[in-house]
Simulated scan of single mutants.
Amino acid sequence: MKITAFAGSNSKTSINKRLVTYTASLFNQPDTTVLDLNDYDMPLYGMDLELENGIPNDIFKISTILKESDLLIISLAEHNGAYATVFKNLFDWLSRVDGTKGFHNKPIFLMASSPGGRGGASVLEIAKARLPFNDGEVIDTYSLPNFSSNFNDKDGITDPELKSILFDKIENIKSQLKF
């Protein structure tokens, strides 16, 4: 099984990238790729820009990676209760690629974390409702609140209950997708 994971953030110190990288490792699949959206050239989407220059090559690269994946793990940063600009921009560009509305009907494990107690709950709800309209099948969600209190790079999730919830979700996804 091929897993592609990424954070909907362009912060070099993204807590959501740390969470998605940790989570992807828990699937124990050798064919796992963690993308960094900073590695792709994605100018701010606009119809005039698309008409003048076409779709950037890096968008086609990302679209192909998503299409060839069996599972997408996406952890979204929440900015002012919604997507971070980099994710919305990626979303807009992907929706312009012929043959897809964005996510190639792939199963998505949708996640979010934040420094606060709601753990990105607002962006999770927005994405969970929106992604199915763009060929994304959200099969489960996970929220990690109070990131700095509940996560470290050595142990991953440190709160036993939150860790157990994540592990249960991963096992359910593995079973559902026959990993």
Rank of each mutant, 00 (worst) to 15 (best):
M1S: 12
T4N: 06
A5L: 08
G8K: 06
N10F: 08
S11N: 15
S14E: 09
N16H: 13
N16Y: 08
R18F: 08
V20P: 09
T23K: 03
A24H: 04
S25K: 15
L26W: 04
L26S: 01
N28I: 09
P30V: 13
P30H: 13
D31C: 06
L35P: 11
L37E: 03
D41I: 11
P43I: 00
L44C: 11
Y45R: 04
Y45K: 01
G46I: 02
D48P: 07
D48G: 06
D48H: 09
L51S: 14
L51I: 08
G54M: 03
I55Q: 05
I55A: 11
P56K: 00
D58Y: 10
I59S: 06
K67A: 14
E68K: 15
D70K: 09
I74C: 05
I74W: 09
S75D: 11
S75N: 07
A77M: 02
H79C: 01
N80L: 06
A82E: 12
A84T: 12
V86A: 01
F87E: 09
K88D: 10
F91H: 14
W93G: 05
G99A: 03
G99T: 09
K106R: 12
P107F: 00
I108L: 11
L110H: 05
L110R: 01
A112V: 09
A112M: 04
G116V: 00
G117M: 13
G119H: 08
G119S: 04
G120Q: 10
S122D: 14
I126H: 10
I126G: 05
I126Y: 13
A127Q: 01
P132Y: 00
F133V: 02
D135L: 04
D135Q: 13
V138K: 02
I139Q: 01
D140V: 07
D140M: 11
T141H: 04
T141R: 00
T141N: 03
S143V: 04
P145D: 00
N146W: 03
N146M: 14
N146C: 12
F147M: 10
K154E: 15
G156K: 01
D159G: 05
D159C: 07
P160L: 02
L162C: 01
L162G: 02
K163P: 03
S164G: 13
S164R: 07
I165N: 11
K169C: 02
I170L: 08
N172E: 13
I173T: 08
K174T: 03
K174E: 11
K174A: 08
K174V: 07
K178Q: 13
F179H: 01
